[in-house]
């Protein structure tokens, strides 16, 4: 919170901008805390994602004592590709194939995506936990979908060896992490909603006058929100039975904007507040 809080991960320019924002908005930050408090304490995450040069430079300035570290030869292994057997990371080709097998089976006519179209919203794919798996075991993948028509999670277990869906399990009241698409849809709802006023105001302040109209202007991370998993009631009882999303929100190459109090219900397209 103070002038001393320099962040070595950012470029000079970004750091300066973040600190300027902190100075100018810190007082206001308290005032807008009731909406969406922009607290420019942190520098852009984008800076560290821009490659090893920035990161390595930051590391060496931040850790002068670690002279021996980082000097050894480092090897890099590319991500595995194509079909696999046994135990190990899912490849892109396997994920695509598992998804395609799961989708081929089709869904009941009443199933709906987040956008309200017939079908189910794809969420994620993961290798089946199989303690008995050996090097030759055919790969089995759990493909997760969410059916907004009935607010239920659908898991299809796909055998990549046989190309068959082995089983389908469904459950209500359980909410795995939102997909990237769901996260963007949640942000779009918040941006349009009256409760998004603080976000819009803080975005304009952080970008020296730009207007927030699209999730593409933000760096987003979606969190599912299930009231039943909290240690105290949050007043959003539908969340859990409904699919609800919270957001970590950052201006692209800019500071965080606190939106964590807002809960976007993707099942009924409403925005609510914790507390």
């Amino acid at each position: 919170m103070t002038e001393q809080g320099e962040d070595h991960r950012s470029g000079k320019q970004d750091g300066a901008r973040a600190r300027t924002l902190r100075r100018t908005l810190w007082g206001a930050g308290i005032a807008v805390a009731a909406t969406a408090a922009l607290i420019a304490v942190t520098v852009p995450r984008g800076a560290s994602a821009q490659g090893d040069n920035a990161t390595a430079g930051a590391t060496s300035t931040a850790a002068p004592g670690s002279s021996g570290a980082g000097t050894g030869p480092v090897t890099e292994n590319a991500a595995p590709q194509g079909p696999q057997t046994g135990i190990g990371p899912l490849t892109e080709a396997e994920v695509d194939r598992a998804k395609s097998i799961a989708l081929q089976e089709g869904t009941p006519r009443s199933f709906r995506t987040a956008a309200g179209k017939q079908g189910a919203e794809y969420l994620d794919a993961d290798l089946v936990d199989d303690p008995a798996a050996t090097a030759g075991t055919p790969r089995r993948v759990e493909v997760l979908f969410y059916d907004y028509g009935h607010d239920q999670l659908v898991k299809k277990t796909v055998n990549l060896g046989t190309g068959a869906v082995e089983r389908t399990d469904t459950a209500t009241g359980v909410q795995p992490p939102p997909s990237g698409d769901e996260t963007r849809q949640a942000a779009a709802l918040l941006i349009k909603d009256p409760l998004g006023q603080g976000l819009r105001t803080d975005f304009t302040a952080a970008t020296k006058g730009q207007t927030l109209t699209s999730p593409d202007q933000l760096r987003l991370r979606g969190l599912s929100f299930n009231t039943g998993e909290q240690s105290a009631p949050a007043g959003l009882d539908k969340c859990g039975a409904n699919r609800c999303v919270r957001l970590f929100t950052q201006v692209k190459n800019g500071p965080w904007i606190d939106t964590t109090d807002y809960v976007i219900d993707l099942s009924d397209h409403t925005v609510g507040r914790i507390n």
Binding site: D52, G70, G72, T75, E76
Partner: peptide, 13 residues
């Protein structure tokens, strides 16, 4: 590489 001195970094999808 600076975070994984002397090691091997593996990518994954």
């Amino acid at each position: 590489p600076s975070e994984c001195p002397g090691g091997a970094i593996s990518s994954v999808y």
